[in-house]
Write a protein that binds this DNA or RNA. Structure first.
Lengths: 145, 145
DNA sequence: TGTAAAGTCTATAGATTTAGTAGACTATTC
DNA sequence: GAATAGTCTACTAAATCTATAGACTTTACA
């Protein structure tokens, strides 16, 4: 399961993506419209800013806006940012690699082999899931109702 | 990431699968050979027994052994047993379904659509990963060294 | 130039989960 | 009946998650 933090981050990003071009959007509006606790959202947006996905403007007329294109921001990156590795085992991650303490031989571990495949497919699907793709799917789902 | 509990459970199951036909294996041996804290392993094996994957015998000559065939026990079931749902969101699980509080319309949610696909593929791969399959992969990895 | 708007930073805190430990109890074998 | 081996109940330390509180800084604009 992803954390609420990650879920909120995704919701906020999709919200901002839908309103690209409107200039900065204030935190309060995102919080209200997306039903996210205001103070919690603050720290989430700050993280997204530090990571280079968002930018902000202070003072009147300020708020947050996307810094990257909606088709460049994908769920794999967002999930990694807040929840860390996507893989089920530390020994099949790239950036968070850690050896399993109980493991005898990593090279020939059948369990690792399975989880490596799962991770590969998962990351592939999540990388394809950009903000644009999510919005496109939404339109498609509405059209088929 | 899966919990240590789940990882230990998988390790113990693969260990027992490799020794099918040898009769009951004592907890201490599994704990030592697989480097799992003894007391922790006890409760894990008890859970696996309650779930019908293992059986046990008390007293001298006792221990644990597989109740199902190694090709009937798969990682999806084991992971669900200890860590609950495999999916990233409660709204795409079958047995643990829960609505997202912030969600406006589940039917047309693009985020949900993506995570549903990820879950489907993940479960498919994990269902295929039986104890036999894991052991087979291990042999295969050794052969290709 | 000052005031309101809006983001930023630091600290804290309750709830839940994870990973384990301790010890008494029960059943079985020989 | 003693040794062996699983079972059951309770507890705990540490980490993580989900926030909340409040003071501070920057900016726009009248």
């Amino acid at each position: 399961m992803i954390s609420k933090k990650t879920k909120y981050a995704i919701n906020a990003l999709v919200f901002l993506a839908k309103r690209t071009g409107e200039g900065p959007i204030v935190i309060s509006e995102i919080a209200e419209k997306e039903h996210i606790p205001r103070k919690f959202l603050e720290s989430i947006l700050l993280n997204l800013k530090k990571a280079g996905l968002l930018a902000s403007k202070k003072g009147k007329g300020g708020g947050y806006y996307l810094l990257q294109n909606p088709d460049e921001i994908n769920l794999a990156d967002v999930m990694r940012l807040f929840d860390g590795p996507i893989a089920f085992l530390p020994c099949v991650t790239y950036k968070y690699y850690e050896r399993c303490e109980e493991c005898k031989d990593e090279e020939t571990c059948g369990i690792r082999d399975v989880f490596f495949e799962v991770k590969r497919k998962t990351v592939e699907l999540l990388k394809q899931a950009s903000l644009s793709e999510i919005i496109k799917r939404e339109s498609s789902l509405i059209a088929h109702l």
